[in-house]
Design a protein around this nucleic acid. Structure first.
Lengths: 235, 235
DNA sequence: CGGGCGCTTGATTATGTTCAACTTCAGTGG
DNA sequence: CCACTGAAGTTGAACATAATCAAGCGCCCG
């Protein structure tokens, strides 16, 4: 279950450099101390909020992974975003709107609850924070646009190869944590479990990728890139 | 061809009430006059900007319709947004990023070019403008999330029915302009021309919708709503 | 009047889904 | 420690949906 582990001390936060408070001049970190967001832990599969709830907070993810999902009445699901350390989410309240998605922990998580009113005040006071938030909104929109292109115009293998390459990025031929189930990869890419499983199995048989207990490694990136873009270049 | 038709006088603009300057207290409209964005006209099918261009401006659409598209090297296209009067677009520069999509006029258009630096200054000065921009970013993100759900989780008929109902909204059983070609509807919904044409023809034969010279009318909204959501309610 | 574009329609194919059976593995309790 | 259980993953076969290919229509514009 989720529980409160205390008040955040942003000034000494280990993931501040990833957050919207990253570029804050040190002289203003003091003000941030008054802000004192509540820090909570969540266990895997727990909801942080549900689509339709009225927002009192925005959130910063400190530790773990989160999926933002939208779902249809009959149970079909689309993952619209995967959140990593330092990511800001649940900011719908800034537009006086209810949460437009549900947030679910993919792993055990540590999350800062940022009261909307306080954050709004900070944002108006400190241009660095304002700028950081704006950049994140625009980046989120870009990510969403790229995903629309994937979902609307690409085929299964292209989407999956693209997902693997992006996920494995920054790892030079090393093992990368893959905490998403086949089902979740399907929900992210608009595919069924079976389709995801078939392509992954195929690529494993051909030695394009390797897998072991929740980790994945790309052996033949070139091959995946050719799947993504038959006659283009890629990394 | 596009050409400049002069400097905008926001204070007397007919679509200001739809724009990010809508809620500006009258006392500040004067400042806005110094801003003086360039107003330009574009003819249908013209590019306003291209994906990858460096942004100098954001834009407000005064008159007409615009599509924002992303495309793959092999020519496949996804429309990621359709813009209407008063909509703000091309604001990628605020995050120091290149345009992430291309903007193309769907009809003859009138567009305000808003210099980034000037707009940034206005935003920081006037909370109303700042708030309006933020709301639009969040709304755009919501729209994008809804579209991801459509593209990833729904079938052709559901997407198309949903599109028609949304497009026809605010019209009480009247004729609604439909300036998108079958091809463009396909590019928006992740479908081929043929698939779009087939469903529309079918619904026309059944009397669910009517069409005449670039206009469309929904005769049997209930039927479309049942296609969208087999056992739910809808408007 | 001719040409071309957008739209429609049919036939065929491909891609991915659905359904079903089986395997693997982690966790649980005897 | 091992048998049992259930969830996650794999695989095959049948099926459905939408894409592709192809042909023809209607209409606007030159």
């Amino acid at each position: 279950m989720s529980h409160i582990i205390g008040k955040g001390r942003c000034i000494s936060c280990q993931v501040r450099h990833l957050s919207i408070f990253a570029n804050l001049s040190t002289q203003y970190l003091g003000e941030l101390c008054d802000f004192q967001p509540t820090v909570m832990t969540y266990t895997a599969k727990e909801f942080i909020y549900r689509q339709g709830d009225s927002p009192n907070n925005a959130f910063t993810l400190r530790k773990g992974l989160i999926k933002l999902i939208k779902s249809l009445p009959d149970g079909r699901i689309q993952i619209v975003r995967i959140l990593k350390s330092g990511d800001l989410f649940g900011f719908d309240g800034f537009a006086h709107q209810d949460y437009n998605q549900s947030a679910i922990a993919l792993s055990d998580c540590e999350i800062c609850h940022l009261p909307l009113a306080g954050l709004q005040k900070l944002r108006l006071q400190r241009p660095e924070i304002d700028q950081a938030m704006m950049q994140r909104w625009i980046q989120s929109l870009h990510d969403a646009e790229n995903m629309m292109l994937d979902l609307g115009a690409k085929k299964a293998s292209e989407r999956l190869a693209n997902f693997l390459v992006n996920w494995g990025e920054s790892e030079q031929d090393g093992w990368k944590k893959m905490p998403l189930s086949r089902q979740e990869v399907g929900n992210l890419l608009g595919l069924t479990v079976e389709t995801v499983s078939r392509f992954l199995s195929d690529w494993k048989r051909r030695g394009v990728i390797q897998e072991r207990k929740g980790c994945i490694r790309i052996k033949d990136k070139k091959h995946l890139c050719e799947v993504i873009n038959p006659k283009g270049t890629c990394g």
